[in-house]
Lab assay of single mutants.
Amino acid sequence: QVNIAPGSLDKALNQYAAHSGFTLSVDASLTRGKQSNGLHGDYDVESGLQQLLDGSGLQVKPLGNNSWTLEP
């Protein structure tokens, strides 16, 4: 069960990665100043990332080996 409060997208993504045990490689300029609506409930990694990114204009991309990145 994930419980991440709304706020900074950077912070939300870092909390989610730490909670879910995956690696997220992101260029900080992509997420700077963006906000997230947070995340509450049970999600697989990709669904949770998509939910956190909702409205940010960013997309999640798998890199393999439980690693992910973001792209515009």
Rank of each mutant, 00 (worst) to 15 (best):
A17T: 05
A28V: 10
K11R: 13
Q1F: 15
S67W: 10
D42R: 13
N37G: 11
A12F: 06
S25W: 14
V2R: 05
H40R: 13
I4E: 02
S67D: 08
G38Y: 01
L30P: 03
Q51C: 13
S20F: 15
G48W: 07
S25Y: 15
N66I: 00
A17V: 08
A5N: 08
N37E: 08
L9V: 03
I4R: 00
D10C: 14
L30D: 04
G55F: 03
D44M: 06
Q50C: 14
L49K: 00
H40N: 12
L63C: 12
S8F: 08
A5E: 11
A17D: 05
D54S: 13
G21W: 04
F22Y: 01
Q15S: 09
S47N: 08
G7W: 00
K34S: 02
L53W: 00
G21P: 00
L63W: 04
P6Y: 04
T69H: 07
G64W: 04
L9A: 01
L52A: 02
D10W: 14
Y16S: 02
L52T: 01
L63N: 12
T69K: 09
D42F: 15
T23F: 12
A28M: 10
Q1M: 14
S20R: 13
N65P: 13
L30M: 08
Q50N: 12
L52Q: 01
G57E: 05
W68P: 05
T69R: 08
N37S: 10
Y16Q: 02
Q51I: 15
G38I: 02
D44P: 06
L63T: 11
Y43R: 01
P6I: 04
Q59I: 14
P6M: 06
A17N: 03
L30C: 10
N66Q: 06
Q35M: 15
V60H: 09
T23M: 09
P72T: 10
Q15L: 11
V60A: 15
Y43A: 03
T31I: 14
L13V: 02
K61M: 08
Q59R: 14
L58S: 01
T69A: 12
S25Q: 14
A28L: 11
N14D: 12
N14W: 13
W68C: 07
E46W: 14
S47C: 13
S29M: 10
K34A: 05
V26F: 15
G33R: 05
A17W: 03
S36G: 02
G41F: 03
L39H: 00
S36C: 09
K11D: 15
E71Y: 10
L49R: 00
P62E: 08
N3Y: 14
T31N: 02
S67Y: 10
V60S: 11
G57C: 12
L58T: 00
L9S: 03
A12H: 02
P6T: 05
D44G: 08
G41W: 04
S20W: 15
G57I: 04
G48M: 05
W68Q: 05
G41P: 00
T31S: 02
N3C: 15
P72H: 08
A28Y: 08
V2W: 09
G33S: 05
S47H: 10
A5W: 08
Q15N: 07
H40G: 03
S56Y: 05
S47A: 12
L13P: 00
A18I: 12
N65C: 09
Q35C: 15
T31P: 02
G21A: 01
L49V: 01
G55V: 02
K11L: 12
A12G: 02
A5G: 10
V60W: 08
S36H: 05
G64T: 04
L58Q: 00
F22A: 09
S29D: 12
G41T: 01
H40E: 09
E71D: 06
W68Y: 14
W68D: 05
A12E: 02
A18V: 11
W68M: 05
K34F: 07
S29Y: 10
D54H: 14
Q51M: 13
A5H: 09
L30I: 08
G64S: 06
V60G: 09
S8W: 12
N66D: 08
L63S: 09
G55W: 03
G48T: 03
A5L: 11
Q51R: 13
P72D: 07
S20M: 15
T23R: 06
S29E: 14
L52N: 01
K61L: 09
S25E: 14
L52V: 03
D27R: 04
V26C: 11
I4Y: 03
V45H: 05
D42I: 15
G7D: 06
N65G: 11
D42K: 13
S56D: 01
S25I: 15
V60D: 00
T69S: 12
S56T: 15
L58G: 01
Q15D: 14
G7I: 04
V2C: 11
K61I: 12
G38V: 00
N14C: 15
S8Y: 07
G38H: 01
S36T: 15
T23P: 06
L13T: 01
P62Y: 15
T23V: 11
G55D: 03
K11F: 13
I4D: 01
I4A: 01
Y16I: 04
A18D: 08
G48C: 05
N3I: 12
D27P: 09
S25T: 14
Q15C: 12
